[in-house]
Nucleic acid binder design. Structure first.
Lengths: 333, 333
DNA sequence: TTAAAAAATGTAAGCGCTTTCAAACGAAAT
DNA sequence: ATTTCGTTTGAAAGCGCTTACATTTTTTAA
């Protein structure tokens, strides 16, 4: 690999001049500029980004922490963020935290040791306190899908409470009264909020919030199956199942079908997230759209604006509204 | 951020000693070791990976190029590779090439400028020639899902030809004779190979390979719909549709259903890849499993062995066999 | 006890760049 | 021609580490 030194030699100019033409941030006469450019591609020169970063104290890279590298939720998040940042010449360094505290902190350590210019975190296991401290440590941090007290202006979240409300409201609007709810693991913020929304919708409609109609799942498909089993055996007159995500809705549908129920005639099902496969389910899943795209986009825009002084065309928004996606799994009572 | 210099000062030792305890690659007496460790966490010291890389000419990171950051195929590939490399303290830097030549080369340039210790490439748009040159340029390169002439021992591929064969063979074994084939875009190696396998199965069974039974799609769902429309209007007696991937199979199923056909009673459908949603389709899709996991795993193992001298427990294999996944969309004639 | 060998630590050069500051240059003004 | 001022270039320090080599300290053997 040719170095800047060899280029300077070949072009007959100093290191500084080569650096100047590379960065285009200082005047260089057209003649020497050309000499340098020629020398560069004669040598096949590629600047060493590592050395550049060390010298300039800038990496032009943004660290992104997600929980997993697979799954359509994270796929969309990563894609969105990468697209918008790359458009501005910035690069994303992605790591996975696997919803385990030590792996998340490890991943964040990695990103900071890499001296990322900023971080975008979808951190689920780490404490609020940790995030607050990190936020004060110097690196600009944007948090996705989590509201951390005291750093609201760096958080980009969906209004999960309202999403939960919308789901249950849709059931109620269809005449349902016996509404089962399969929640996510309640240590997760979004799961609690969605449940709160559900309860509010129930209250608004004057429907009792019976404990036997609630099942706490873990967001995985299998717990949707379990959830159906438990709720249905306790409540034979159950007419709709509101699920805190699409995976569990899918599991519930499978279990319901195995129990001989027809969806939505015997049992309606509603999901949450609107992940890719929800429209491949049969019947197509009625669900709540989770505005992942918007959250990612805005987090990226916020970084561009606050770290690189690249103004966003749109105003920065921190909370995004979920919407009901009406398909075929919710029917009238 | 504290630097190694401040640590050395605080601990009352030289830079070199601090570096030694950090890297654990040289003897340091237990007493000074402890002094240094204490100084480190008193200062909250984090080594600067950028500086380490520059000095040591090692980044401990592997560049990974995928076509997209979303989609279950790439999700699985990224997850697999990250998991195994992280287990050995290596990090993955992921970039997306979006199946466009200049974006792929740009992404690769980025990875090399970052001085990755090695590259794992799922490159679709770039030429064989380019890859060959890159392979000779010094960075160790592993290629996934593509066989490049002259660098076979760095390529990790599925036996797509045989996969295509298995799909059509399954149709034939079920008594079908009028077999429609929706291929992928034939500029892609895997699409061509799958088609070749299809043709071989036809020949083996003595079935004519009629041009009106072939439709070239683009691997997207919509072209599955088109494909069905075209093939079905030309061949009213079509009894099975073999599709070169699951997305197109899904599209074809939708279109068939809209045309009033029942699957698999009126028309059987077979997919390829066995992506996540294939089992959420209705009926569940019979498909060919694409051994993405194995390819990723092996590419990672190869890098560990060849770049970091970490021996793989399993022998290195370069070609992986797809398998038929029997579900509900293929029925007897 | 002393010399030799082994272990622990320090010194300093260098990784490939950026960037400040000073020097050289050229054109316009006198 | 000389001065002046803006433009272009170069010299050199430094970013935070690693590592070869030199030096000092400790251990072992005689």
């Amino acid at each position: 690999m040719a170095t800047i030194y060899e280029v300077s030699e070949a072009a007959g100019v100093s290191l500084a001049t080569v650096s100047r033409v590379m960065n285009g941030n200082a005047r260089v006469s057209e003649r020497t500029r050309q000499k340098v450019l020629d020398a560069m591609d004669a040598l096949g020169y590629r600047p060493n980004a590592i050395a550049q970063s060390l010298a300039s104290n800038r990496t032009n890279s943004i660290g992104l922490l997600v929980s997993e590298l697979h799954g359509s939720y994270f796929g969309e998040l990563m894609s969105t963020i990468e697209l918008i940042l790359k458009k501005h010449g910035k690069h994303v360094i992605i790591t996975a935290g696997h919803v385990e505290e030590h792996r998340e902190t490890e991943a964040i350590d990695f990103l900071t040791s890499r001296r990322c210019d900023a971080l975008i975190l979808h951190a689920e296991a780490v404490s609020d306190d940790y995030l607050t401290k990190l936020g004060k440590s110097g690196v600009p941090v944007a948090v996705v899908n989590r509201k951390v007290e005291g750093m609201e202006d760096q958080c980009f979240v969906a209004d999960n409470e309202n999403g939960g409300y919308l789901a249950t409201k849709a059931a109620i609007d269809n005449g349902h009264k016996k509404i089962g709810y399969i929640s996510g693991p309640l240590f997760k913020q979004d799961a609690t909020e969605r449940l709160n929304g559900h309860v509010r919708a129930l209250n608004d409609a004057g429907i009792d919030n019976e404990p036997t109609l609630l099942f706490e799942g873990d967001y995985h498909e299998s717990s949707g199956q379990e959830g159906f089993g438990k709720l249905f055996s306790d409540n034979a007159d159950l007419s709709v199942l509101v699920c805190a995500n699409d995976e569990m809705a899918s599991g519930a549908m499978t279990a319901a079908r195995e129990a001989g129920l027809n969806i939505p005639d015997d049992l309606s099902v509603i999901g949450f997230d609107n992940v890719l496969f929800s429209r491949y389910l049969h019947p197509k899943l009625t669900t709540i759209n989770n505005p992942v795209h918007s959250m990612g986009e805005m987090a990226a825009a916020w970084i561009l604006e606050n770290v690189y002084d690249i103004k966003s065309p749109e105003p920065i928004v921190h909370v995004f509204e979920p919407e009901l996606v009406e398909r075929d799994s919710l029917g009238p009572l």
